[in-house]
Structures are given as structure tokens and as C-alpha cells.
């Protein structure tokens, strides 16, 4: 447990430094975009949050799978620990996207495939959280939650591919695994830095929320008493 504490501090502080340095670099030390001007700088906040909102859901679905098949209790704790943080990142992605939309698209909201599927993701996170808290029996709640989390995972490829499958207002991805990024290197490096930093910050959030969940659920066990 003490090692976890040290790892948590290390991850948190190093990723905070990376995130803040990349944000300052991106927001103040890169040139403006030739089309969007300065509003493009929201990319350094929007893209990491959108990326994490999807990857958190995938990790939640994987943990659900592990819980359903092997009944690992820790996996169930992870599922409910990740859900509020996933909701947070999705909320940041939606609001930052809306604010970005005002100066660039001329609207803060469109029922376009990418935006709508992200809204569905947000509602799904909220639904999972409220469902879990509506049960008094933790085990029943865990079982139902992990099933629903797996079913909802279908939304992730839809979000990912929505910009290619439908005509959307949202542009397609600038960074992909297969092609050369369509963003200039001077803008790309701070973006990658902000993604790594934000990732680390979210990992540390997941660590403390799981710590809370373990405390809450194992409070009657003797080892917890020794630790506290």
C-alpha cells in the first residue's frame, strides 16, 4: 500500500508538470493556426479530454469483462471507480468542444453524429453511476453495472468512426496510428505532451477513487484497520 502511495505521488506530480508545461507551450508559444487563428489553442485541452473519455470507457468495459468472467472483486471496484472520472472527462470534452464551436463553426451545438454519440457516452456514464448508487446490495449492483458497461462499449467505435461514416460538422482526426499527422510538428509536440500529462493526471485520479472504493467496501476487514 505504501508503494502505491509513492507511485501515486510520482505519477501525479510528474504528469502535472508535463501537463502544465505543455499547456503553456501550446497556449502561448506556438503560432496561431492559419485558418482558425487563436481559437485552435483549445485543441490542447479538448483532445486529451476526448481521448481519455473514450479510453476510460474501454478500460471500464475490460474491467467489467474480467469481473463477469473471473469474479475478481477488485475489477468491480475499478468499474465503479472509473465511471465518475469518465463522466468528468466527457463533460470537459463536450463543453470545451461547444466553446470551440462558437468562434469556428458559428454554433455551440449541432446534432451531428460525433457530438451526439459523445453526449450518449456522457449520459451512459451518468446512468451507470446513478444505477450503482440506487442499489443497497453492492454485489448485485456490480453485476448489473458490468453487464451494462459491456453493452455500452458499442458506442466507442461509433464515436471513433462517426466522422468517417457520416457527414459531420466535426472534422476527422488529425492524429491517427496509420497516417502522418495532419498537424504541423510545432503544434503536435505540445499536443502530445498535454495528452501524456492529462493521461497521468487521470490515472492518479483513478488511483485515489479506487482507494476510496476499497476503503468503503473492505472497511470491515482486518487488514484495512491495520492500514488506517
Amino acid at each position: 500500500m505504501f508503494q502505491v502511495e509513492r507511485a501515486y505521488k510520482f505519477i501525479l506530480y510528474s504528469s502535472l508538470i508535463i501537463y502544465i508545461v505543455s499547456l503553456i507551450w501550446g497556449l502561448l508559444f506556438t503560432q496561431e493556426d492559419f485558418v482558425q487563428g487563436n481559437s485552435y489553442r483549445i485543441i490542447y485541452l479538448h483532445v486529451p479530454a476526448s481521448f481519455l473519455s473514450q479510453s476510460l470507457y474501454i478500460s471500464m468495459a475490460v474491467a467489467s469483462f474480467v469481473y463477469i468472467v473471473w469474479r475478481v472483486k477488485l475489477a468491480a471496484y475499478l468499474v465503479i471507480s472509473i465511471a465518475p472520472i469518465g463522466a468528468l472527462t466527457t463533460f470537459i470534452a463536450l463543453t470545451s468542444g461547444s466553446i470551440w464551436g462558437i468562434p469556428t463553426w458559428g454554433t455551440w451545438w449541432q446534432w451531428d453524429a460525433r457530438i451526439t454519440s459523445t453526449l450518449i457516452l456522457f449520459i451512459m456514464y451518468l446512468g451507470l453511476i446513478s444505477l450503482h448508487s440506487s442499489f443497497s446490495n453492492y454485489e448485485k449492483a456490480d453485476k448489473l453495472l458490468s453487464w451494462l458497461a459491456i453493452v455500452g462499449a458499442i458506442n466507442i467505435p461509433i464515436i471513433k468512426k462517426s466522422v468517417d461514416w457520416w457527414s459531420t460538422l466535426h472534422q476527422s482526426a488529425s492524429i491517427t496510428l496509420t497516417d502522418k499527422p495532419s498537424i504541423d510538428p510545432s503544434m503536435l509536440y505540445p499536443l502530445i505532451g498535454s495528452m501524456i500529462g492529462f493521461f497521468g493526471i487521470i490515472i492518479s485520479l483513478v488511483i485515489i477513487s479506487s482507494k476510496y472504493q476499497i476503503f468503503l467496501r473492505e472497511k470491515n476487514k482486518s487488514w484495512i484497520k491495520e492500514y488506517v
Binding site: L27, N38, S39, L45, L88
Partner: peptide
């Protein structure tokens, strides 16, 4: 930021406060 500052900085504040 040529009029875009309000959008950029409000997103910065939103992210920092929520984290």
C-alpha cells in the same frame, strides 16, 4: 488573443477547476 481569448481561457479555467 484577437478576441478568441475568452473562449480559450474559459476552457482552461473549466478544466483546472473540474480537475
Amino acid at each position: 488573443m484577437n478576441g478568441h481569448g475568452i473562449y480559450v481561457w474559459s476552457v482552461v479555467i473549466l478544466v483546472l477547476i473540474s480537475l
